[in-house]
């Protein structure tokens, strides 16, 4: 059902855990199935220097969190904000169509963490793009 890449990230999740003194924290719930993802970021000079996640969800959700955190580590906040769930799906070599929404959760979690950071810095939060792909009719990436 899942690609080897998904299984690899599921079996050996990267960046799992918590950053106690995080600069930004995002927590999102999956509207489809009720699962929860939490993203912690550490920011220095506009760069995400560290990122960790906690996920209560399916294999695809855990693998997506792992991959998404890998993709934004070392990136600028702008670059991390631009990372879409599609990029996560591609990096995972595809997700079954019913599981694309789990990768959307990772994108949303990162956006929340970045905005939490911005608010704590006294900056205004960034707006979600109109037409933000909420995944369901997206290609599966396969």
């Amino acid at each position: 059902m899942y690609s080897e890449k998904v299984m690899d990230h599921f079996m050996n999740p990267r960046n799992q855990g918590e950053i106690p003194d995080a600069d930004g924290v995002g927590e999102v719930g999956n509207p489809s199935c009720g699962d929860i993802m939490r993203i912690f970021i550490k920011v220095k000079d506009n760069i995400i220097t560290d990122v960790k996640f906690q996920t209560f969800g399916c294999g695809a959700a855990i693998a997506s969190s792992s991959m998404a955190t890998e993709l934004i580590k070392g990136k600028t906040l702008e670059e991390a904000w631009e990372m879409s769930n599609k990029a996560v799906v591609e990096a995972l070599e595809g997700l079954p169509p019913v599981k694309v929404h789990c990768s959307v959760l990772a994108e949303d979690g990162i956006h929340q963490a970045i905005n939490d950071y911005r608010i704590k810095q006294g900056l205004s939060p960034w707006e979600e793009k109109a037409g933000h792909a909420h995944g369901h009719d997206d290609e599966s990436g396969e």
């Binding site: 899942y2 599921f10 079996m11 699962d35 209560f56 399916c58 294999g59 959700a61 855990i62």
Partner: peptide, 14 residues
Amino acid sequence: EFIEGESLLLLLDH
């Protein structure tokens, strides 16, 4: 409590 069943099945399948 605190975990999801599909991911549990995947680990057991492994």
